[in-house]
Amino acid sequence: MDMPTRILLWADAASMVLICIAFVLTVYRIVRGPTLPDRVLGLDVLVSIAIGFMALFAIKTGYALYIDIAIALGLVGFLATVAFARFILVKGAQASAVQDVVEEGDTPLGMTPRTAGGRHE
């Protein structure tokens, strides 16, 4: 009776250590990340790791309410990633159009597909 609970709590603590290291590595990628999509991806991973952390906390404390919070956080994280993807699509279309003009010089038609792809809403 006592032994399995101790094993479970030990596994929980070990998992929390791993999760904390994963948090630090993900934050490193978000801070360092060379481009905006890298940071958005880091945010996505951060949400996913936080959901796992909440599951560990639900096991450790016995509060099942953390599962509901984890589901709500997953929904928010999904919507945030979708919104950021739309933002990258719209914002980057303008930036890369400028970049195309600078790179290709006399062929501004080269930016037509990308601009059309970015503004199809």
Binding site: P4, T5, I7, L8, W10, A11, D12, A14, S15, M16, L18, I19, I21, A22, F23, L25, T26, Y28, R29, L41, G42, V45, S48, I49, G52, A55, L56, I59
Partner: peptide, 23 residues
């Protein structure tokens, strides 16, 4: 309890490897 311990350890290893891959 044993099954849950194995599941959370494997899950934590997966999450950790995701973060390592991200870096």
């Amino acid at each position: 309890s044993i099954v849950a311990s194995i599941l959370i350890l494997v899950g934590a290893i997966f999450a950790f490897s995701a973060a390592v891959g991200l870096v």
